[in-house]
């Protein structure tokens, strides 16, 4: 397992390096001049501006700038926001509480709803319940996340007054109870879109597994239907389910931008949105780096689970 982990982590480095290169070079193409955002350049002469550019290395070729940026990132210096002048990483750390909690609870919600639904649909194939689960999963797939969020706000916060309307309540100020209460709707809105896909994939994978030879053997040797379904089939289904969950965690982290805008939550996603809107590209790069790293880390964790479930897998 140790060797496997090291190999897995090492294989990540080039991917992260390339991902960030793509983002870095895209940001270079933004039609803004960082010097004018960092300093009040109105009263400066061209020579002074040039001097500042040299000081920050903005006149170096893009590839040199990129390598320097990555070097600093690994040293822990993620640069400063062009707008607030604060360290990029600090801004992310201040806002990551709601984002991580939303992603975590949405993932749990997705798994708790989707996996039993998919398994049930597969074991009761072609029953009315199977059709109901399939149809409602397609229906949920069609619902735009932001619209679902707004409707939930209207019904449960405005009309019924069960959940707060005014965004996220920090644990530090309001305690866990209030904080979790303010996360119910965002998690539901974000999670429901992924429930559908996961339920469908679980169902089709479970059906695949149920038609395998070893299932027939298990039945032939007289195991109860329950034993066949839950011990033999489910375990083999789970290995695929784990990879899908990994993919949806990435989508949820990225999707936090949308959901945090709808619910007016001051999280990393909202910060990514405002930073992009005001061309604060150091901040934006930092956030994408942060999300990519978390996503990569989550995937390593899931690979471990995957290997535990199915030791034959070579990664």
């Amino acid at each position: 397992m140790g060797k496997f982990l090291v190999k897995r982590i090492l294989s990540l480095i080039p991917t992260v390096f390339i991902s960030m290169a793509i983002i870095f070079f895209l940001m270079q193409a933004l039609p803004v001049d960082p010097i004018h955002l960092m300093y009040d350049t109105e009263d400066m002469t061209d020579a002074q501006v040039q001097e500042l550019e040299e000081k920050h290395g903005f006149d170096d070729p893009a590839i040199v700038q990129y390598l320097r940026y990555m070097k600093n990132v690994f040293k822990g210096d993620w640069g400063n926001s062009l707008f607030s002048k604060e360290p990029v990483f600090q801004a992310i750390a201040d806002r990551m509480e709601p984002t991580l909690l939303i992603t975590f609870f949405s993932t749990i919600l997705t798994m708790v709803v989707a996996i039993p639904a998919g398994v049930f649909a597969a074991t009761h194939r072609n029953s009315p319940l199977d059709y109901t689960i399939s149809a409602s999963s397609i229906l949920f797939d069609s619902v735009p996340t932001f619209w679902l969020g707004l409707m939930l706000l209207y019904i449960f916060s405005f009309k019924m007054d069960i959940f707060p309307l005014d965004g996220y309540k920090l644990i530090e100020h309001y305690g866990w109870g209030e904080a979790l209460k303010s996360l119910v709707l965002p998690c539901f809105a974000l999670g429901m879109g992924h429930v559908a896909g996961l339920a469908r994939q679980t169902r089709s994978q479970m059906l695949n597994v149920l038609s395998a030879d070893y299932i027939r053997t298990a039945r032939a040797k007289g195991l109860s239907e329950r034993m066949v379904n839950y011990k033999h089939a489910l375990k083999n289904t789970m290995s695929l389910v784990v990879t899908i969950v990994g993919g949806s965690i990435g989508a949820m982290l990225g999707g936090s931008t949308v959901i945090e805008n709808v619910f007016n939550i001051q999280g990393v996603g909202k910060l990514a949105y405002t930073s992009l809107m005001r061309s604060d590209y150091y901040q934006e790069q930092g956030i994408i780096m942060f999300i990519t790293l978390i996503y990569a880390g989550m995937n390593i964790l899931l690979d471990i689970v995957y290997k535990k479930l199915d030791p034959r897998i070579e990664l």
Binding site: P14, T15, V16, L30, G250, T257, A272, L276, Y295
Partner: peptide, 21 residues
């Protein structure tokens, strides 16, 4: 390698960045 790099970026954010550029 490039495709994998693109794939591991958060989709919504990537689309937003490309669209704003």
């Amino acid at each position: 390698r490039i495709m994998e790099g693109l794939h591991s970026l958060p989709t919504t954010l990537l689309a937003m960045v490309v669209a704003s550029v």
